[in-house]
Write a protein that binds this DNA or RNA. Structure first.
Lengths: 125, 125
DNA sequence: AGATGAACAGCATGTTCATTT
DNA sequence: AAATGAACATGCTGTTCATCT
C-alpha cells in the first residue's frame, strides 16, 4: 500500500496553468474561439518575451476550466468553410465564477510583481 | 539502452533556483554567512509575500554556485562561541563570474516583470 | 537542538502518439 | 494537414532521513 503525501507549495511564482487559464477566460469573454486559435494568439502575443506555451497546456487548461472550475462550457460547431469538420468552442458558463477566478489570479499577479520588484531592488538597488 | 530526451523550456517565469542564487550571491557579497542563516534571512524577507523557501533549495543553490558556476568557494570555520562546531561559509571566488551571472538574472527578472505587467493590462485593463 | 547534505518522491508541464475530420 | 486529447517522460523542488557537532 502506497503512502500518499500531499505536497505544500512554498509560494514562489504563479504557475503557468493558472496564468493561461486567466488568458483563456478573457479571450473567450471577448468572443468564442477554439484551442489552436487561442494557442496561436498566446504564442504570438508572448513571442517578444520568449514565452511559447504548448498546445497540450492549453487543452489541459481548458479542460480544467470546464470540468473542475465549472467556468466554461463546451460546444461542438462546424468549422467555418467546411461541411463536416467540427471544432470545439467554449463559452462562459458561470460569469460569477469567472469573475472570482480572475480576481484570485489578479491578487497572485500583484503578489508576483511585488516579489520581482523586491528582488530588483534588493540585488541591483 | 535508455533514450535521453532533452527538454526545452517554454520560457515562462524564472525558476526558484536562479532567483535564490541571485540573492545568495548578493548576501555573500555583503559579508559572509552560512546556509541556515541565509535561509532565515530569505524566509523573513519574503514572509509578507507568502514565499517560504526550503533549506534543501538553499543548499542545492549554494552547491551549484560553487561547483557548476565556479562563482563561490567554500570554507569551514569554527562557529562563533564554540570550540569545535564547524560551519560552512562561502565567499566570492570569481567576481567577474558573479557579476555576469547577476546581469543575466537581471535580464530575466526584467523580462518576467514585463510578462506580468502585460498580463495585468491584457486581462484587467 | 542546529547545521549540512544526500536520497527519495510528487507534481507541473514538455513530448510523443492516436484519433478524427 | 488541422484539431483534439490521451499517454508518457523529465526536471524542479518539496519531504524525509542520515550524519556530525
Amino acid at each position: 500500500m502506497a503512502i500518499i503525501t500531499k505536497r505544500e507549495s512554498t509560494g514562489f511564482l504563479i504557475k503557468q496553468r493558472a496564468f493561461l487559464k486567466l488568458y483563456l477566460i478573457t479571450s473567450i469573454e471577448n468572443g468564442r474561439s477554439y484551442g489552436l486559435q487561442l494557442l496561436d494568439d498566446l504564442q504570438k502575443g508572448f513571442e517578444i518575451f520568449g514565452f511559447r506555451p504548448q498546445a497540450s497546456e492549453i487543452y489541459r487548461a481548458l479542460y480544467e476550466l470546464e470540468d473542475e472550475e465549472g467556468i466554461l462550457e463546451k460546444k461542438k460547431i462546424p468549422m467555418e468553410g467546411t461541411k463536416r469538420k467540427q471544432i470545439v468552442v467554449y463559452q462562459i458558463k458561470d460569469k460569477e465564477a469567472a469573475k472570482s477566478y480572475k480576481k484570485l489570479v489578479k491578487a497572485d499577479l500583484d503578489r508576483c510583481s511585488g516579489l520581482l520588484k523586491k528582488a530588483l531592488e534588493d540585488n541591483y538597488g
